[in-house]
């Protein structure tokens, strides 16, 4: 099952398959998505390794992905996946193909629960202080309900959340606590995923 149009070299594909949860076909499909996302012509049909790592689309393009368009945490997701790059790499804004692929891999069906939890934590951790503080929770909540709840209600909800999940009582959810509570949520795996 070779792909006729050599978007990637065999080697690249192998590497991508090793690093993500995708099969060759899916990687190609994601690439197509990536191309569609950008303005026409911005993403070449043939991706060299350089392009894959460096060619960046502006973050606003991400919203063109239908799955993310409606997502209340869209910006945050894009941020998380573009920011966690190794230092030393260019710090331009935007998302490159590899990051996009990584994102999709995390959201894919086959990604392990731990991986998903890890990234979910990062996504919800708006201020990036390593814990989900009250601010994080409130922001999550507000984005989720899109202003349909009053501030008071939001505050109550966040308080409740802390009551339920903050085991050590420090007023914020640490990663462990988050993981603890989230892995037991019945819907987490079903909902925290995007199909490509």
């Amino acid at each position: 099952m070779g792909n006729k149009v050599a978007t990637f070299t065999e080697e690249q594909l192998e590497d991508y398959q090793d690093c993500t949860f995708f099969t060759r076909k899916e990687i190609l499909r994601i690439h197509k998505r990536f191309r569609d996302m950008g303005d026409p012509g911005t993403v070449p049909r043939v991706m060299s390794a350089q392009d894959a790592a460096n060619l960046r689309l502006p973050l606003s393009c991400v919203t063109r992905l239908p799955e993310l368009r409606e997502n209340p945490f869209m910006e945050r997701i894009a941020e998380v996946f573009t920011k966690c790059r190794d230092p030393g790499w260019s710090l331009d804004e935007g998302i490159c193909f590899e990051e996009f692929l990584e994102m999709m891999s995390v959201f894919s069906e086959h990604a392990s629960r731990d991986l998903k939890v890890f990234y979910a934590f990062k996504i919800y951790d708006f201020d990036e202080d390593g814990v989900l503080g009250l601010g994080d929770l409130e922001r999550t909540c507000r984005q989720l309900v899109r202003g349909a709840l009053s501030a008071e209600e939001v505050a109550t909800i966040c308080r409740k959340v802390l009551e339920e999940s903050d085991i050590d009582g420090d007023g914020s959810l640490s990663y462990l606590e988050f993981e603890h509570v989230i892995t037991r949520a019945p819907d987490f795996l079903a909902t925290f995923h995007i199909r490509i």
Binding site: L65, P66, E67, L68, R69, E70, N71, P72, F73, F107, A120, Y124, L137, T140, C141, L144, I157, K160, V161, E164, S165, F178, V181, I182, R184, A185, P186, D187, F188, A190, T191, F192, H193, I194, R195
Partner: peptide
Amino acid sequence: ECGFTWKLFTGWDFMIGN
């Protein structure tokens, strides 16, 4: 058990695109 937390963190279905 952790109704609020779950609702908050897993409430959104990431697959929804419509």
